[in-house]
Design a binder for these strands. Structure first.
Length: 640
DNA sequence: TACTCACGCATTTTT
DNA sequence: TGCGTGAGTA
């Protein structure tokens, strides 16, 4: 029983609670994973549940993996039903999908496949691609599915020209998907729900099977996920959810933190426990985070506290340009490094991917190793998608999207592939053998030039895919894994040559991670909060939650920076510092700017740069940058 | 079939 | 401004 001693009072209360559904409101860094896994472990340990009776759902494979490992560590037992919403739904559909007309051989379409299909449909329907962008149509269909509105129902509800077009596309889309034996990510969830709603016996089977249902990151559930959880947990009411409304940052993907509030209506005896003791950050960082998030009005806010001391103040970096910002960040990193902070303990967080460039350039110049998180994912690379398309054609030549994609790579290649297709699809061949056949019959790799670095990398990627295929018995499980398990990033990853590296990523990607020192860059109105979020209060609150998530990633040191001038989409603009900076108590902040480079705030038109009195917004960003990096002198600057 | 060029578009992206 | 897409051409 000694594992209980590792928990604080609130955590222990959560672990020991029984008899009614439980909502754990867990703040950032409050040990929610520990609490959730120990609770599962406790049920197993005390014999209240067998490992098979616990369903533990997460949003990412990484979280699932971590939960699995931690339960094994505490109990020595393996929980077979720990996984993402999508993988769990997928498993259910593979076994019981037939009951609602879904054959178990379905393949999973990702966003790119969806778009290809919508494009094809839209072409056939002769829609104006400018007026009805395939992406917008996909988004509309996706949102509709998340609300579990099927194509037929939507057609009846559609009002206005756009919705009516969406309805037509949606109907055709579903028709094709059925023909191609394909499900998209939203289908996995909504069809699983349909199945449970359609067949009472199946529902009962899962309700009996899973006496306990655990859900992580509950604030990020959409309607389909909410319903899925509710259905399965209904009979036994062994529901345990963990969430924090302040960390809900995926509204644009259908996440609705209000699902937390709904629980109170769903279960009158809902037990609510707050985990507000933070084990990650200094009190200064927590106070800053609270200062920001308390400006939000629409959701509950936790008051985090720590037994740690106040720690260092938050550093504010004011820069002239994006390049100057990168330079100043670089300087601070050098200081951190010499004070004993390792590169892998440092992260640079930004709102948009485009911001990484200036930072990267700086790091390359100063020789600082870094790892960029995000960008094109492995399975989204063209060469990988091409090979996967061939594999799907092997599985099902009726798969229109994959057939179309393969055709684009040459009709000849496709014809050669189909020649011996049946021989290889006799059920006797492994995923690896079929992949081998795909590559030899289509001679796909010959389209690459071995003298081009870029092409060599592509060939390498295909080889890597082939290596992954070896881990799977049949083609189906291989393809399923490819669709549902993206290669994930782990905090403190090293560079290719195995040097410890600084992490660069978006704020969204940083959720769930922690670093000793965090730099949040580009804190400017229009960038963060993003211009697209400024008109709408709901969206502004989401931006603020993103700021909150960013701040709470930091353990010891937090740096906030902004630039006075920044080029966005080719046009230079004068920037104003983010309102979020001003939502932090100034007593918690110290400015790192020396008086020589002091920038007046709020930004005025004039600035004293080393006493030259040059009006900076009369200079181009490049000129200013050259001056600041010492490439041109004051005299040269004045002459320009 | 492969390449070129003009055009449009540009927030975040767990599965 | 810089990239990806898609139509058009050799």
């Amino acid at each position: 029983m000694n594992y209980l001693d590792e928990l604080n009072e609130r955590q222990k209360e959560a672990v020991l609670h029984e008899g009614s559904p439980l909502l754990i409101l867990a703040g950032a860094g409050s040990g929610k994973t520990k609490t959730l896994t120990y609770k599962a472990a406790h049920l197993v340990h005390t014999g209240k549940a067998s490992p098979e009776q616990i369903l533990l759902v997460t949003f990412t494979n990484k979280a699932a993996q971590e939960m699995r490992n931690r339960v094994v560590k505490v109990t020595g037992q393996y929980l077979p039903s720990v996984g993402t919403f999508h993988s769990m739904s997928c498993r259910i559909l593979r076994t019981h999908g037939r009951e609602i007309g879904i054959e178990p051989e379905f393949v999973i379409y990702d966003a790119g496949d969806q778009e290809d299909l919508v494009k094809a449909i839209s072409r056939e329907m002769e829609l104006d691609p400018k007026r009805y962008k395939p992406k917008s149509l996909v988004t509309a269909i996706s949102q509709t599915k998340q609300e579990m509105v099927d194509a037929g129902t939507y057609s009846n509800l559609a009002r206005g020209q756009f919705q009516e077009i969406v309805a037509r596309v949606y109907l055709e889309y579903q028709k094709r998907m059925a023909k191609y034996k394909a499900l998209d990510f939203d289908d996995l969830l909504s069809k699983a729900v349909s199945l449970l709603q359609a067949n009472n016996e199946t529902l009962k089977y899962y309700q009996d099977k899973f006496r306990y249902v655990f859900v992580d990151e509950y604030q990020d559930t959409n309607t389909a996920q909410y319903t899925f959880t509710k259905l399965i947990a209904k009979a036994n009411r062994g529901l345990v959810v963990v969430g924090d409304a302040s960390q809900s940052i995926y509204k644009w993907r259908g996440a609705d933190y209000r699902n937390i509030l709904k629980l109170r209506q769903d279960y009158s005896d809902l037990k609510e426990i707050r985990l507000e003791r933070n084990y990650r950050s200094t009190q200064t960082i927590l106070d800053a985070a609270h200062g920001v998030i308390s400006n939000n009005r629409s959701h509950p806010i936790l008051a985090l506290w720590t037994e740690q001391n106040d720690g260092e103040k938050i550093s504010l970096i004011e820069a002239y340009t994006a390049g100057d910002e990168a330079r100043k960040v670089n300087e601070e990193i050098q200081k951190l490094k010499s004070s004993g902070v390792n590169f892998q303990e440092i992260a640079i967080l930004y709102r948009t991917n485009a911001q990484s460039r200036a930072i990267e350039e700086m790091f390359i110049r100063s020789g600082i190793p870094y790892v960029l998180v995000g960008g094109t994912k492995f399975y989204e690379r063209k060469e990988i998608k091409d090979v996967l398309a061939y594999l799907r054609v092997m599985l099902n030549p009726e798969d229109g999207v994959s057939y179309g994609r393969s055709e684009k790579n040459g009709k000849r290649r496709l014809a050669d592939l189909l020649l011996n297709r049946e021989k290889y699809m006799d059920g006797q061949h492994t995923a690896s053998e079929i992949l081998e056949y795909v590559l030899t019959s289509t001679k796909y790799l010959t389209k690459f030039d071995e003298d081009l670095d870029e092409d060599v990398a592509r060939i390498e990627n295909v080889k890597e895919l082939a290596a992954v295929a070896q881990e799977f018995e049949d083609l189906h499980s291989f393809l399923e894994n490819v669709a549902l398990v993206q290669a994930e990033y782990y905090a403190g990853e090293k560079t290719k040559d195995n040097r410890e590296a600084i992490t660069l990523m978006t704020l969204h990607a940083a959720k769930g991670l922690e670093f000793r020192a965090v730099f949040m860059v580009g804190l400017e109105e229009g960038l963060f909060p993003h211009a697209r979020s400024m008109a709408d209060n709901e969206e502004m609150e989401e931006e603020r939650r993103l700021m909150y998530v960013g701040i709470t990633r930091a353990k010891e040191r937090l740096y906030l920076s902004f630039a006075r001038q920044r080029t966005v989409w080719g046009t230079e603009g004068n920037q104003q510092r983010s309102r979020f900076i001003d939502e932090i108590d100034p007593k918690l902040i110290e400015s790192l700017n020396s008086s020589a480079t002091y920038l007046p705030h709020p930004p005025s038109d004039f600035v004293r740069t080393k006493n030259t009195g040059i009006r900076i917004d009369a200079l181009s960003e490049d000129t200013l940058d050259d001056f600041l990096s010492g490439e041109i002198s004051v005299e040269e600057l004045l002459s320009r």
